[in-house]
Simulated scan of single mutants.
Amino acid sequence: MTDKSIPLSVATMTREQLDAELKKGYASIKAGKIYSADEVDKLLEKEFDLKLTPTKRRLHAPNNCFN
């Protein structure tokens, strides 16, 4: 059993633990539990008492981004 007070780290997980966590995430997505980046920021701010700055995003890449 995993201690829930210690965050999981991919670096220390066994293959079986990682597989189980990925399956839980996939099941969550299939169940419709999908959050935007802004919603995740708000959840993290609340859960960990953080103050995050808003992400500055572009709706699309500029036309010359590969020049």
Rank of each mutant, 00 (worst) to 15 (best):
M1S: 12
M1E: 09
M1D: 12
T2R: 07
T2A: 14
T2F: 13
D3N: 12
D3F: 05
K4G: 05
S5T: 13
I6V: 15
S9F: 15
V10K: 13
A11I: 15
A11N: 14
T12R: 13
T12A: 11
M13T: 07
T14G: 02
R15G: 10
E16S: 06
E16R: 04
E16Q: 09
Q17N: 02
L18T: 15
L18A: 13
L18R: 13
L18C: 13
L18G: 12
L18E: 11
D19N: 08
D19Q: 11
A20E: 14
E21T: 08
L22Y: 15
L22N: 14
K23F: 02
K23G: 09
K23R: 13
K23N: 15
K23W: 13
K23H: 14
K24D: 09
G25T: 04
G25I: 07
Y26G: 00
A27D: 14
A27S: 11
S28N: 14
S28Q: 10
I29M: 06
K30S: 11
K30D: 10
A31I: 00
G32Q: 10
G32C: 09
G32F: 02
K33M: 10
I34L: 11
I34Q: 05
I34C: 08
I34G: 00
Y35P: 00
Y35F: 12
S36T: 13
A37N: 08
D38L: 04
D38I: 00
E39K: 08
D41E: 11
D41K: 04
D41I: 04
K42M: 01
L43V: 09
L44T: 09
E45G: 01
E45M: 00
E45A: 00
K46W: 01
K46L: 04
K46R: 08
E47I: 09
E47P: 01
E47A: 07
F48R: 06
F48Y: 03
D49V: 03
D49A: 06
L50P: 05
L50F: 06
K51N: 06
K51H: 09
K51P: 00
L52W: 02
T53N: 00
T53S: 04
T55W: 02
R57G: 05
R57H: 05
R57N: 02
R57F: 04
R58T: 02
L59S: 10
H60V: 01
P62T: 06
P62G: 01
P62E: 03
N63C: 10
N64V: 06
N64Q: 02
C65H: 15
C65P: 08
C65I: 14
F66W: 12
F66D: 14
N67F: 13
N67E: 13
